[in-house]
Design a protein around this nucleic acid. Structure first.
Length: 608
DNA sequence: ATGCATCGCGCG
DNA sequence: AAAGCGCGCGATGCAT
């Protein structure tokens, strides 16, 4: 297979640029123009190509054997989209040094080609400031174009060197996963239902408008916290305050889940009630802006799915390109509306398969909490079991509310949640429990799950060891490797959860550990490390399952514990069986981990 | 005008 | 001793 490293230089202006618009819009835009591109095949000399679109297209198709090539770029979502959408070129495999860098270094080095090239002593990225702003290809004279070419060639050389340096130790499976996630964007399959979207936008706007009109308040006064506070004071209501979740400074408690704010919805003065409901109904503009984005994309073509590889510290995927397809509403007033507008192409259907309680299962398995693991394996109702223990009764006698408490306990208490937060958590679901009872429930969880409790302590010890660069172990043997030099924890995928700059400090609460993140430092402790590795392990599992599914069907989206594929309609049931089979399979290193899944299929993503 | 911090909110 | 966690995007408010 040929290795082809390439980099496009394209027209941009003040407003038509990647800092202003999304990659999807930029590449599909009328103003799009390639100034030139540098290409390096294997160890051949890098060439600079410039010319009309037609000339480039003919040359690229004639000169290179794309069917038998791996294409490497730095930020392949961009260059790959150009190759695919503009030149109709779809190589055998895609790779991306930006994705690889994110996986290898976390935040240790920036993802830029410049930073990575410097880190590996590969050379210096061109510093020559080339004024290309607003210049079309024809506006460059020969000298300028040639200088631009040199700059571009240098970038390709750096990317080539970078790839060779980091690819040899990069896990092969993960390279395949990068290819698969890039294809979700570069080779779009899903379509958008424009009529449905426009109708949804209209209704959403109408509801808000009506609410605003009936409240008799200016929109700006509702949106701004200080102005809204003034309105409340005008009715003799002192605005509720709370400590800021991040800084601890006092701030207005105007969020829809702030208890004191919720109480104002029933305030004796009906004018206050109207004010609060108007604020709640109009404050969030997410649905409108997002629907508008979908509409814009729908008018341009299919839906490229931007999924960011290793977006999270734990190696989980994230959203990208200004549309986060991993947080589309599925509950509440807007639940499923946008998902229903995402449809399979003609003759095809969408299958969406969810892994059942994957993180809770991983936790039980990793901790060696065998009774819990066994309960998961047998398909027992673990939430009900938990409730039975909490309330000291038979499973058959557990009420709906009690089961709910059991569920919240299993899902929340597994990472060290304390009684006060547990109580607050229940409250957000509308369930009231006094603190004493919350303490009792948390204590029961910790007693009945002694192995999980031990795992937290083992993880706390691992944190302390890593901070001193001393060896440590964590969880089931052969699954995780504590790299006390990095420091970090190596996942089964071969990727590491980094705890860069892990340090401790003596505080009035005792010794506190923290590590460096993109912004500042984050505290870390046993329960949190356990959560991190469970998330990381779950990602390893879903990643391998996704590759298996991808061998037969087109994977179009992943949302942490779920995988969506598009298949020909007539293969629907057969494909569903295969997808479920894949999601019940675990890699060798996870034998004994009881996974399960649920799936649905339909014409749209929402119908699944 | 533009960037950054903060908050809120959607998902897992 | 105790501590649920992980994202991205949009709007506001403030600093540059």
């Amino acid at each position: 297979m040929d290795l082809i490293v390439l980099d496009f230089e394209t027209y941009y202006s003040k407003d038509y640029s990647l800092s202003k618009i999304t990659t999807e819009e930029y590449v599909r835009h009328d103003e799009f123009e390639v100034i030139g591109l540098a290409v390096k095949r294997n160890d051949e000399e890098t060439v600079w190509l410039s010319g009309t679109h037609q000339q480039l297209k003919e040359y690229l198709h004639a000169e290179y054997d794309w069917q038998n090539a791996m294409v490497v770029c730095h930020n392949t979502m961009f260059d790959g989209a150009i190759l695919g959408w503009r030149f109709g070129i779809n190589p055998r495999a895609w790779a991306d040094t930006l994705c690889m860098g994110r996986a290898l270094h976390g935040i240790e080095v920036g993802g830029s080609l410049k930073a990575m090239a410097e880190r590996y002593n590969l050379g210096v990225k061109g510093t020559e400031v080339l004024n290309a702003l607003g210049k079309r290809r024809k506006d460059f004279n020969d000298v300028e174009l040639s200088r631009y070419g040199d700059y571009c060639i240098n970038d390709v050389e750096l990317t080539h060197g970078l790839f060779h340096t980091i690819a040899k130790d990069f896990p092969k499976q993960e390279l395949k996963l990068i290819d698969l996630t890039l294809r979700m964007f570069i080779e779009p399959v899903l379509e958008l239902d424009l009529n449905l979207l426009e109708q949804h936008l209209y209704v959403t706007k109408q509801i808000k408008e009506d609410l605003l009109t009936s409240s008799g308040v200016e929109k700006g006064d509702l949106m701004s916290n200080p102005k809204f506070a003034a309105l409340l004071r005008g009715f003799g209501v002192e605005p509720p305050m709370k400590p800021s979740p991040t800084t601890g400074n006092p701030t207005y408690a105007f969020a829809k889940n702030d208890e004191e704010f919720k109480e104002l919805a029933d305030y004796p003065d009906s004018r206050v009630q109207a004010l609060v409901s108007a604020r709640l109904g109009t404050k969030s503009t997410m649905e409108e802006t997002r629907t508008q984005r979908f509409i814009d994309i729908a008018k341009r073509g299919k839906l490229p799915v931007p999924i960011r590889y290793c977006a999270a510290h734990t190696t989980r995927f994230g959203g990208d390109d200004k549309i986060n397809l991993q947080n589309l509403p599925s509950r509440g007033a807007n639940g499923g509306k946008l998902k229903k507008a995402i449809v399979a192409p003609a003759g095809h259907i969408v299958i969406d398969a969810d892994s059942a309680q994957i993180e809770a299962r991983v936790l039980a398995w990793l901790a060696g909490q065998d009774d819990l693991t066994e309960a998961f394996r047998k398909g027992e109702d673990v939430y009900k079991k938990m409730a039975a223990t909490i309330y000291g009764k038979k499973e058959d006698d557990v009420t709906k509310d009690e089961r709910f408490v059991g569920k919240t306990t299993i899902l929340g208490a597994g990472y060290g949640m304390g009684a006060a937060k547990f109580q607050a958590q229940l409250k957000t679901f509308g369930y009231t429990m006094d603190l004493e009872e919350a303490r009792r429930v948390i204590a029961i969880y910790r007693q009945t799950n002694d192995r999980i409790n031990f795992l937290w302590r083992e993880a706390q010890n691992a944190v302390a060891c890593m901070a001193r660069h001393d060896p440590a172990t964590l969880g089931l043997e052969g699954v995780l490797r504590v790299d006390h030099e990095a420091p970090g924890i190596v996942l089964p995928s071969g990727l590491m959860i980094h705890y860069d700059g892990l340090e401790f400090e003596q505080t009035d609460k005792g010794v506190e550990y923290s590590y460096k993140t993109r912004k500042g430092r984050t505290r870390v402790y046993g329960g949190k490390v356990v959560e991190n590795v469970c998330q990381g392990i779950a990602r390893c599992i879903i990643g391998e399952q996704m590759l298996r599914i991808g061998k037969k069907y087109k994977v179009v989206l992943t949302v942490h514990d779920a995988i969506a594929v598009v298949v020909p309609q007539e293969e629907g049931f057969e494909a569903q069986l295969y997808v479920e089979e894949c999601m019940r399979w675990v890699p060798d290193w996870a034998l004994g981990l009881p996974v399960n899944c649920e799936s649905g299929m339909g014409k749209s993503y929402g119908d699944c």
